[in-house]
């Protein structure tokens, strides 16, 4: 069986509309991706712990709250702490330009504005490198166990 891209899609923060994330999740599935759908009201800890257990290639977060800076910062910090920086973080929501720049510096790979074409998101995800997500500690002789 071949490698398959695995992506975690979730809404983070307090606001509770899930239509947008659901549409993205379905579009990714229809494009041949394995999507772990985590719904609304997730905390950064819940996201990162799930991303690690599910060994995903990327985490797509929808944020529609003024707290986007803090939330994304916390997710990238926790991924770093969990030595799982190989997991790409991307996001969607209304994010002012200067924040957007700051987030990219933090390591957020892409930010999609509301109404961004689904194809764009699908293309981005399909181009993520597979299997670089997390290194298993200690490597297999004659090649790393991270695949």
């Amino acid at each position: 069986m071949a490698k398959k891209p695995r992506i975690l899609i979730a809404k983070i923060g307090l606001d509770g509309h899930d239509r947008g994330v659901k549409i993205v999740a379905r579009a990714l599935r229809d494009a041949g991706i394995e999507v772990i759908y985590l719904g609304i009201h997730n905390t950064p800890q819940e996201i990162v712990s799930s991303a690690i257990q599910e060994d995903v290639d990327g985490v797509g977060l929808s944020v529609h709250s003024a707290a986007h800076m803090t939330l994304f910062k916390e997710v990238t910090r926790l991924l770093k702490k969990g030595k799982a920086t190989g997991i790409a973080v991307f996001g969607g929501g209304i994010i002012p330009r200067e924040d957007s720049r700051a987030l990219k510096k933090l390591g957020v790979r892409a930010l999609f504005a509301p109404g961004a074409p689904l194809e764009e998101i699908v293309e981005f995800v399909k181009r993520l490198p597979l299997g670089r997500r997390q290194k298993a500690k200690g490597s297999a002789r004659g090649g790393s166990a991270s695949g």
Binding site: S49, I52, Q53, E54, D55, G82, K83, A84, R133, Q134, K135, A136, K137, A145, S146, G147
Partner: peptide, 8 residues
Amino acid sequence: DPKTVARC
């Protein structure tokens, strides 16, 4: 270690 378990 959750990462290693997940990876395996």
